[in-house]
């Protein structure tokens, strides 16, 4: 261990071998994933976000919503996400291929939002909730949001859907 070059070579090997074994192989396996039809000849999923939802994604990032909300539904054997109604099937890697920055999140102070669009309230109710949540609900009030930003955020939240079949996760009929 007294030879600096050997020490550095060993540390480099540890870091590089793990990076190659985990990240490079993951990229090889997942890097070519693209959208896929839910049924033969049908439209491709995940669907492209409408323009207002793209702006809403920026508001979502801006407010740091990822600190309290995840966007990943785990399979039935790994948690109770589906039983709790967070989604109708587990999330798969293909669901995220269109997202410039994946917002999986690591903490659920609030509910998971991966399939929120399928169970969301109306636009007006959602905007009212974001501005002034009901008493007893542990959600911060965003009364400072302008009407444009609020509408964009609502559009983004309602665009979050994972209720389509994917080759890796078919919906039960």
């Amino acid at each position: 261990m007294k030879n600096l070059n050997l020490l550095l070579a060993g540390v480099f090997f540890c870091v590089a071998s793990v990076w190659t074994g985990l990240l490079v192989t993951a990229q090889v396996q997942l890097g070519s994933l693209g959208r896929a039809p839910a049924e033969e000849g049908g439209p491709l999923f995940p669907a492209r976000e409408p323009g207002l939802a793209i702006q809403g994604r920026a508001v979502y990032l801006d407010l740091g919503c990822v600190a309290c909300h995840t966007q990943q539904v785990r399979p039935a054997g790994q948690g109770s996400d589906i039983a709790r109604g967070y989604g109708v099937r587990p999330s798969v890697a293909r669901d995220y291929v269109l997202q410039p920055q994946v917002l999986l999140g690591q903490r659920r102070v609030g509910p998971d939002l991966a399939n929120y669009g399928a169970r969301a309230k109306s636009d007006a109710e959602l905007a009212a909730f974001l501005a002034a949540p009901a008493a007893g609900v542990n959600h911060p009030p965003y009364a400072f949001l302008t009407a444009e930003r609020s509408a964009a955020l609502v559009a983004y939240l309602k665009s979050l859907r994972q209720d389509y079949s994917s080759p890796e996760a078919k919906l039960k009929q």
């Binding site: 060993g10 540390v11 540890c14 870091v15 793990v18 990076w19 074994g21 985990l22 993951a26 396996q29 997942l30 990943q72 785990r74 399979p75 790994q78 948690g79 587990p90 999330s91 798969v92 890697a93 669901d95 995220y96 999986l104 690591q106």
Partner: peptide, 25 residues
């Protein structure tokens, strides 16, 4: 020393258990 440096990074996928990454990872 060497076991820390080797196993530290390899344990990263454990933070994504059940998530949308391959099961082998």
């Amino acid at each position: 020393f060497w076991t820390l440096f080797l196993f530290a990074g390899l344990g990263a996928p454990a933070a994504l258990l059940g998530g949308p990454i391959p099961i082998w990872l």
